[in-house]
Design a protein around this nucleic acid. Structure first.
Length: 254
DNA sequence: ATCCAGGTGTGGG
DNA sequence: CCCACACATGGA
């Protein structure tokens, strides 16, 4: 399959696939109930096995028109350069429950350890459903203070229609997510962006904070979110991801 | 030893 | 509205 895509950047830029997928000999893979799925890229050609094309297109959001998105983002010099430098970086579409678990694990944590935490929770490569996780032993995952958030959230989600959130408007969906323990504004936005596919979500973490202050002279979550909406709507999520990789390139990762 | 990591919850001005 | 602090864990 031929597409505008940088698979490595997409899979290894702090999105859920970095926590759930493995990499061997340049190929990304993950086990599903129906078997092991592989993804790899050679030149600008995308290959896959063990999964059907429809799933791959949804997972990598190949229907998003990057050219149209780049047009919206290129209104300022910073992002104009970022979309050139990281051309082909895409937002991924992941399972909402898995995404919620991963970003509860992400609280005041670093990417390598988030991955270890998440991998410890998997059973046969799959994230246990909320009702299973609510009653499971979690100590081996070494989640620290996040264990209580995760267990309580799992319990709450198991007795609600979680998928219903994905059918709400962005603001209502976010409000609903933030009722869960351990889910503040940042985690909610990550779940909405990477799990439910709301491209207008703009997660503000420490790196985005630095980026906005350094590149635009703006600080304060409130002002940052307002600016993002004015500049990049409805593709705030893409703007965020390009800013994230840009600012992290300037400072070495942990 | 001290700081930091894709923050949240709580308590205070 | 904003700010300070605790919260486990482990790498730098």
């Amino acid at each position: 399959m031929r597409t505008l895509l940088d698979l490595r950047l997409t899979m290894e830029s702090g999105q859920p696939p970095q926590f759930f997928w493995n990499k061997t000999d340049g190929k990304y893979w993950r086990d599903f109930s129906h078997g092991r799925c592989y993804l790899w890229q050679s030149g600008d050609e995308l290959f896959f096995s063990g999964c059907d094309e429809r799933q791959v297109r949804e997972f990598l959001r190949l229907e998003d028109s990057l050219e149209e998105i780049y047009e919206v983002l290129s209104g300022d010099a910073v992002l104009a350069e970022a979309v050139q430098r990281f051309r082909g970086l895409r937002i991924t579409k992941n399972d909402p429950w898995e995404t919620l678990v991963a970003f509860i694990c992400s609280i005041n944590n670093n990417i390598p350890r988030i991955r270890r935490n998440v991998q410890c929770l998997l059973r046969n490569g799959q994230m246990p459903r909320p009702e299973e996780l609510a009653g499971a032993k979690l100590a081996h995952a070494k989640l620290g203070f996040r264990e209580r958030y995760l267990r309580e959230t799992a319990s709450r989600v198991s007795s609600m229609d979680f998928g219903r959130i994905g059918r709400m408007g962005y603001d209502e969906a976010k409000q609903e997510l933030m009722k869960l323990p351990g889910v503040g504004e940042k985690v909610a936005d990550c779940v909405l962006l990477f799990g439910f596919g709301y491209l207008e979500a703009f997660p503000v973490d420490v790196w985005i904070h630095r980026a906005m202050r350094a590149y635009y002279g703006i600080s304060g979550v409130r002002k940052i979110r307002q600016f993002a909406r004015e500049q990049w709507h409805p593709y705030e999520g893409y703007a965020q991801q390009y800013l994230y990789v840009l600012v992290r390139e300037h400072r070495p990762r942990v």
